[in-house]
């Protein structure tokens, strides 16, 4: 098998980080970006729900106490308050753990934020299995589904700290509701500092023509590892970073399907309603190819260390490489 190279000039080829692999949590990058934005823009107001140390909004709160409101353990009230602030012209960042930001306050987000199309940026941390030991009550595996189903809501899942910083900046500059899914665990920085995130654009992280591996969030590093494993066996995988889940990069996906003949998606989320289904949606409305979706298959998580859980549920690089080989065997 041989790797074909990408044909379209419009493809967004992402500069990859080089040298020693740094590990930084995307929530850390969020905290730093927010602090910077706060210095630049007076209209930015930040809300948190008793988790400011964990979500990293605390630094903003310390620097701009008059524009930071701790709402206590009351996420629904926080989202409603965010909507009111936004209706008066503020750009609001509201943070909690993904479970409570997206789960507890979903209806408030629908009625008070998305229906009136307000500038509330939900920056939800501790998403997915990599929350670790807190277990299933805290491992949000359904938020992409809950958020991408909402009209007006843009959904971004950055792969690393570099992308997270970009995403936060773009979220602040873009009118309307945005959901940003962030992680607790420190994960490898895969992108170079000069990388630019664009809404609705995916990125090409590795070229190849035997199979395409598309991922978001912490799974990007895992599919890159899978691609390395496959390369050692002579299989050239194309790797796509799909941080912009809604809107999604249909062109990049269609081209990968055409040139690779099969797409595997990987996400730290239920396969129902997540990134995989968003990719499948693009393809069934154009030209479907065999797909495999790596993710949680209709079960909740459990306590354990982040890395253990990723491996336990088959979301690690080695499991993804094995799944990719099965997928290649299904190519017509």
């Amino acid at each position: 098998m041989s790797g074909t190279s990408v044909s379209s000039p419009s493809i967004n080829i992402a500069p990859r980080a080089t040298g020693d692999v740094r590990r930084v949590a995307t929530r850390e990058a969020y905290g730093e970006a927010l602090l910077q934005l706060g210095d630049e823009r007076e209209d930015i107001v930040v809300l948190d729900a008793d988790l400011s140390g964990s979500t990293k909004t605390r630094a903003f709160g310390a620097k701009h106490p008059e524009r930071f409101f701790n709402m206590g353990v009351a996420e629904a009230n926080m989202m409603g308050t965010a909507a009111g602030l936004a209706a008066m012209g503020k750009t609001v960042f509201a943070s909690s753990f993904a479970m409570f930001a997206a789960g507890k306050a979903w209806e408030q987000l629908r009625q008070s934020v998305c229906v009136p199309n307000l500038s509330v940026k939900i920056c939800a941390t501790h998403a997915g299995l990599t929350v670790g030991e807190d277990g299933k009550s805290h491992q949000m595996l359904e938020d992409i589904a809950l958020m991408r189903v909402l009209p007006n809501m843009k959904v971004f899942v950055p792969a690393d700290a570099v992308e997270a910083r970009q995403v936060i900046r773009v979220a602040a500059e873009t009118p309307g509701p945005v959901y940003v899914r962030l992680s607790r665990a420190a994960t490898p920085v895969v992108l170079a500092d000069e990388y630019q995130f664009e809404i609705g654009r995916g990125t090409l992280l590795r070229d190849g023509g035997d199979v395409a591996l598309a991922a978001c969030g912490v799974e990007v590093a895992e599919v890159l590892e899978a691609a390395e494993i496959l390369a050692r066996e002579g299989i050239e995988a194309r790797v796509l970073g799909l941080a912009s889940i809604d809107p999604i990069d249909g062109e990049l996906i269609r081209q990968a399907a055409e040139e690779c003949g099969a797409i595997l998606t990987a996400e730290e989320h239920q396969v129902n309603g997540g990134l995989g289904e968003a990719v499948a949606h693009v393809l069934v409305e154009s030209r479907p190819v065999p797909m495999h979706m790596v993710g949680m298959r209709g079960e909740f998580g459990q306590s354990g260390k982040a890395g253990e859980l990723i491996a336990h549920y088959g979301l690690d690089g080695a499991s993804i490489a094995a799944a990719a080989k099965d997928l290649i065997a299904r190519k017509g």
Binding site: G135, K136, S137, G304, L309
Partner: peptide, 8 residues
Amino acid sequence: LGSPLQGH
């Protein structure tokens, strides 16, 4: 991992 005594 695997314990019935979950974090919550």
